[in-house]
Design a protein around this nucleic acid. Structure first.
Lengths: 158, 158
DNA sequence: TAGTATATTTAGGCATACCTAATATTAGAA
DNA sequence: TTCTAATATTAGGTATGCCTAAATATACTA
């Protein structure tokens, strides 16, 4: 299923709104996307043509099972990227979310997989309680614009 | 100066083609962008309106000094991202370049700065000849789907 | 139940970014 | 120099994604 970035965003928004409201309306989607209702209607027509959404005129908006699956995968992608930006690169949460939202449509599966693995690599690190040391060092480096004073090479000098 | 992603790509392409050909023609840009010549003409008209490009009909295409500055900054962004994908995440060069090209227009300055610093952090690592150890470990992790056998925490056990 | 406010939809318009087909220009070969 | 092939441009068309204004439907209130 091949849909444009804009349609991906609309689809994702249905998924997200659904998660807390149980009923999704044109108004909600328009607000979420920062767009006027006619734009939503147009998008919904396209999504319906592609069998991703069900929407009777003046009624509620629902994802088909295919639409749900796709929306969920888009949302996951979004979250992975946000996590990467926020937790690893140390970007503030708001910016991390915005950036994730903008680039989530453009990354290859390969690159996304690597990022997933990078996060996994860090999270499963055996050495540290929370974060591996080098990541702490990176965050120190970002903050103070220099490396932390100690440990250039642990095996050698004290 | 605010231009669309597509125009950014066209501008960047002039910069890149210029670097090896000294003269840039519509044909070259069309080939580079994978697009037909009329699309290039249209883009050039917009870029000219914005004072970024000079182009006499049927003549060569040149960047103004402002255009050059902007193109260069776009190109740098592209390279940073490519480097990040390729050297750090370990994506193959082709995919790294493609992904960089697609997302270079959408990342915030903040995030890009972080990535720059992340690369710098790694390149200036005092501990290793080439790559810090954890990065080698990550690449091992990607390749074999498990951590390298040794050294969970260097200071402790041998 | 009638009227009104809100929500939705339709109609029509604009900008971007692409295309094909037709036309114009340039440059090189005969 | 003339003709032709290559290149560039213009004209006009399509799709996407947004908009405003007008029309329609729904739901709530009196």
């Amino acid at each position: 299923m091949n849909i444009s970035p804009a349609l991906e965003d609309y689809l994702e928004s249905i998924f997200i709104i659904n998660a807390k409201k149980s009923s999704v309306r044109v108004k909600d989607m328009a607000k979420f996307a920062g767009v006027k209702p006619p734009s939503v209607i147009e998008a919904l027509n396209h999504l319906q043509d592609k069998g991703l959404v069900e929407h009777e005129p003046y009624g509620y908006i629902e994802l088909t099972s295919e639409g749900h699956k796709l929306a969920e995968s888009i949302y996951e992608k979004h979250n992975i990227l946000k996590k990467f930006f926020n937790e690893i690169l140390g970007i503030d949460e708001k910016t991390a979310g915005e950036d994730a939202c903008r680039i989530e449509h453009y990354l290859s599966k390969e690159t996304l997989d690597r990022i997933v693995n990078f996060i996994r690599f860090i999270e499963t690190a055996p050495s540290a309680e929370q974060k591996p040391n080098w990541l702490n060092n990176f965050h120190y480096f970002m903050k103070h614009n220099k490396r932390p004073p100690c440990c250039p090479k642990p095996e050698k000098g004290k």
